[in-house]
Amino acid sequence: MTPLFQQLVLGLLIGGLYGLAAAGLSLVFGVLKVLNVAHGQLIMLGGYGAFWLFALRGLDPFASLAVVIPAALVAGGVLYWTLFGWVVRAPEETRVKNSLLIGFGLALALEAAAVRLWTADERSVTTGYAGAVLTVAGLAVPVVRLASLALALALCGGLHLVLARWRWGRAIRATAEDWEAALMTGIDVRRAYLLAFALGTALAGAAGTLVSVGYSISPSIGLEWTLKALIVVVLAGLGSMLGTFVGGLVLGLAEAVSATVFGGPYREVVGLVVFFVVLVARPRGLFVR
């Protein structure tokens, strides 16, 4: 039985990152009704940001969050101004579809640019403490991944607080629910969109940093992470950041179980099948709270 439990521990650890990846996508999707399929590529770039800071400046990857997150905020703002801000003028159905197409083009361009900048090789940030392992009840818990899980939870919780307490956080939630009513209460909806997109990108950057520490990055990981985030968003629904985080944990555990039962190569398939079934079962349900 130990292999299963060991798998579950590892599944839980990566599940936290799934949750963090999904939180950013969910925020953007829920508020702007824009499906950014380049979210995974933004995660990938966040990972390379941390990798660069470590390789060139020797900055500890966890400390580099303090650089990556603000940089990603700015990058998100730029992406909104140059690309996604154009899409939000369209009615909702066109908006989702066009955003999907734009995200797709952006994903290709970012991936190609990353290959150029960092080659197609797999990389990861290997710190001095990378190999540290905690043993709890006979189960191995890699310390770096445990720290990543804790940080992912802290970031999701932080976003929750921002949305609950901050004046513009509430404006973002109001915009997500009913943008016309938000306009009528005097909220500059465009600015709420911009902020939500920038926050979503910042979360992607943070997720990428954590991925580069405990796991590995390469230019092609984008699609995989977009899919993971989408699966979690579909499973957890929109509206609650902590719910999304829990959804990520559930996906991590489900993958662990399926890897044990069906074999390692199938760990991804189960999530995708569930995703498709849930999607078809409630084809218009994603926006329904």
Binding site: K97, Y266, L279
Partner: peptide
């Protein structure tokens, strides 16, 4: 085809990936 617009797109993307991974295995 119960899915519309972007949902059809991501649903079919998932289907394609399911087949790719399975065949690869």
């Amino acid at each position: 085809f119960r899915l519309r617009g972007a949902y059809f797109a991501i649903g079919t993307l998932a289907l394609g990936e399911i087949l790719r991974i399975t065949v690869g295995n």
